[in-house]
């Protein structure tokens, strides 16, 4: 089997994969990093979103080999260095932006990319950006609130307590 190596959350990793092994399978099965989830087999749900070279990617839609040599960031690497929640993660908790938690890693990774590209999104822009992330629990209301609130915090604005 061919081997593949990449940097995941700042750590150099490598492993043996088949040509058909997906990036998400490599993360979950080989690296046992199970924070990244699989919710579908048609690249629709977004539970598997990670960052590859700084951009959000559905990790079920690329082969592990295709990420060879890449910098990959997953939900396990999002918290602050001291273990506390990042601004975005904290906003999800503060605004009850998760229930069962299954879509959450993908939501957070996807939203992080949005806020990098667009630090001041409108509600409509947030909702449109999340088109590729399905949540069955929250009705999105609180996810949208969480992302807008995190955006404000990151811009340095005071956010009204919830």
């Amino acid at each position: 089997m061919p081997s593949v190596s990449m940097v995941v959350n700042g750590r150099q990793v490598s492993g043996e994969v088949e040509g058909r092994t997906l990036l998400v399978e490599f993360l979950r099965e080989q690296l046992r990093m199970t924070g990244t989830h699989v919710g579908c087999d048609t690249s629709q749900c977004g539970a598997c979103v990670v960052h590859v070279n700084g951009e959000s990617v559905k990790s079920c839609s690329i082969f592990a080999m295709a990420a060879s040599g890449a910098e990959v960031a997953t939900i396990e690497g999002v918290a602050n260095a001291d273990g506390t929640l990042s601004v975005l993660q904290q906003a999800f908790q503060d605004h009850h932006g998760l229930q069962c938690g299954f879509c959450t890693p993908g939501m957070v990774m996807s939203a992080a990319d949005l806020l990098k590209i667009n630090p001041n999104p409108s509600e409509t822009e947030v909702r449109e950006w999340l088109e590729g992330n399905i949540c069955r629990c929250t009705g999105y209301h609180n996810i949208v609130k969480a992302i807008l609130s995190a955006a404000a915090t990151l811009r340095g604005e005071a956010v009204a307590a919830e």
């Binding site: 979950r28 046992r32 990093m33 199970t34 924070g35 990244t36 989830h37 699989v38 997953t74 939900i75 396990e76 999002v78 918290a79 929640l85 993660q89 999800f92 908790q93 503060d94 009850h96 998760l98 938690g101 299954f102 959450t104 890693p105 957070v108 919830e162």
Partner: peptide
């Protein structure tokens, strides 16, 4: 009171433990 959920931290950091995460 709208107490924040204690389960959130594990879900937000990728440390949830769903059946398929177990081996």
């Amino acid at each position: 009171a709208p107490m924040k959920r204690r389960e959130d931290v594990r879900f937000l950091t990728g440390k949830g433990s769903y059946t398929d995460d177990m081996n």
